[in-house]
Nucleic acid binder design. Structure first.
Lengths: 321, 321
DNA sequence: TGAATTTATTTGACAGAGTCAATTAAATCG
DNA sequence: CGATTTAATTGACTCTGTCAAATAAATTCA
């Protein structure tokens, strides 16, 4: 019989991981990274890749990055030199080293390989409808960050996300991530998730596209942030439910969401933006402060199982600006 | 500048996939599946694995499954035979084939390898806190089913899920999946997601653990179903928000959720369960019918951008049973 | 400074992983 | 029955990767 209450049994998880490992190994093997009809082996392709993505690397640098035996690598590079794919110049700093570069034809060979590999992946992605592609990327991203892929975080830069209006499913994401994150980070109880659910329910029910907005920040197809601009009165807008996923913090997404709200409120003719937050939410308070909001009221209260100090912030909008 | 509106540009997704492939290849390579100090190569271990999981396979069967060259495999099997790890018996049906089995010591070798591999994965999982483990498994499952791993689906059987009470984040999941699935499958508009958000908001606000329940069905750490039992009146309970993810359908999860509601309502002393559904939701209606519910009222209405026929179903509970 | 040690690279020898073609013997097709 | 196909084996070979030795430049330390 299926147990009602979860026991922390690792065994099925271990099996799931191993099943996935077997599956994914085969999957990657089937892709073969564009070298099906090329004269390069997988290792050679990896070397070529690193050569194309580094500035004047040395052989030992490549060996370290790729985890290759120095002798093996030396032979591969020798072969490349013979084929005229790489050139080398002696290092000024260290007479033992050579600084390696791809020649014209070396770069051409890499481009060809790279284009083929991209095409393969594009075909694989193309077999999936758009929302499933997004789920796939999101899942890969999740695995990468959970298993600690430093370069996954590195690769995220300021232009790696986009803002878009809400779609089916997004409101649930907003509710769930508010509930889970505030429970985890501040120990708030389920009343908070309920409050958020009430807010989004109200938003969807009374949603007026001419007076209100929701933005979802998306990165690699995965939701990483949200903010709402709702009508508080004819002339006053309210900013609500600002959230940025921990793993996407530090990219300026929060500031961007707030700025977008302010810009839009001004455009829609509001005179003032108001918002309610808590004194413990330091990161959010900073964002409001830097966007020009001013603290106008403080109010201690007990909510979500904690003693909190609620704060009202306001930003006056000059219509002309 | 970051674009406001999403354009369907594959390039960043392709890069994300390739980054993940590189990362995961290295990750799996680092795991080495328990054969670090064993006398087996990776391929030999894979052969051993298949031998341990099949009934009297033939060499060609193994070769097909593992994608190995027949000659290569023949040599590996020859080695195993020499070491006394596999035995073979001639096939009655086909004189060219031998039916392979692991000997005692072959099985022992496999068990050792298997235990080591499990231990490795367990250590990796152990480094993650419990909720992150669940996210990891969920993400792997998502990738597996998106890229079409038939055995991932196969492996799901009736005892592969569990029911548990709700946790932070679950309500958001319920809202989001209702919103996304009904939009996708029936074309309902965002008003429906708003309605669900309102229901869960109300549920959390008034939640009385003695009179009400929520069950979340979880599979490999991923939410795949939900149902709520809420108080309608002193003697009448209401079943709400029954949902099963498409990929988890056919495992009896829906029936199980309904049965759990009925059992619990009876135990809590309710005299009747009522529920509201729509005529187009055939699968759900079947479940209710088979659980003993009876259709007591029909009501055409226009909601969620569609013309629908709402239905009220009821189940009388005999207190003694 | 200069001898000892370390480091970057190359080379030779070799083992393991995997492919390809040829061979044998049994099974199947027509 | 002869022709073709299939399962399994074997030999020859290539590619992948490791290990140890050699060389030359750089660094350390007394």
């Amino acid at each position: 019989m299926v147990p009602i209450v979860a026991e922390l049994d690792l065994a099925p998880r271990i099996d799931a991981v191993r099943r996935f490992n077997r599956f994914y190994t085969r999957h990657v093997g089937a892709l073969n990274e564009g070298l099906l009809e090329s004269r390069f082996s997988l290792t050679e392709a990896r070397v070529l890749y690193e050569l194309a993505h580094r500035e004047l690397p040395t052989a030992s640098e490549l060996g370290k990055v790729l985890g290759l035996d120095a002798g093996y690598l030396s032979r591969i590079l020798g072969g490349f030199r013979k084929q005229g794919l790489v050139g080398s110049q002696p290092s000024q700093a260290d007479g033992r080293q050579s600084l390696l570069t791809l020649t014209e034809s070396g770069r051409a060979a890499f481009e060809l390989l790279d284009a083929r590999a991209r095409k393969e992946i594009a075909e694989m992605l193309g077999r999936l409808p758009e929302p499933e592609q997004r789920r796939l990327i999101a899942a890969m991203h999740a695995i990468g960050s959970l298993l600690g892929a430093p370069e996954q975080a590195e690769a995220a830069d300021k232009s790696s996300y986009l803002l878009r209006p809400h779609q089916p499913g997004d409101m649930g994401w907003v509710v769930g991530r508010h509930g889970a994150l505030y429970a985890q980070e501040y120990g708030w109880d389920e009343q908070f998730e309920g409050l958020v659910a009430g807010i989004v329910a109200e938003f969807l029910k009374r949603y007026d596209p001419k007076r209100e907005r929701c933005w979802i920040a998306e990165q690699d197809g995965e939701n990483v942030g949200s903010v709402f601009l709702v009508q508080h009165s004819k002339t006053v807008a309210q900013l609500r439910l600002l959230l940025v996923e921990p793993r996407a913090r530090g990219l300026g997404i929060g500031a961007r969401l707030v700025a977008e709200c302010v810009r839009c409120a001004r455009q829609l003719g509001y005179r003032k933006i108001t918002l309610w937050t808590q004194s413990v939410l330091h990161a959010a308070r900073h964002l409001y402060e830097r966007a020009g909001f001013e603290l106008v009221q403080e109010q201690p209260h007990r909510s979500f199982g904690k003693d909190l100090i609620g704060e009202t912030w306001e930003l006056k909008l000059t219509p002309g600006a």
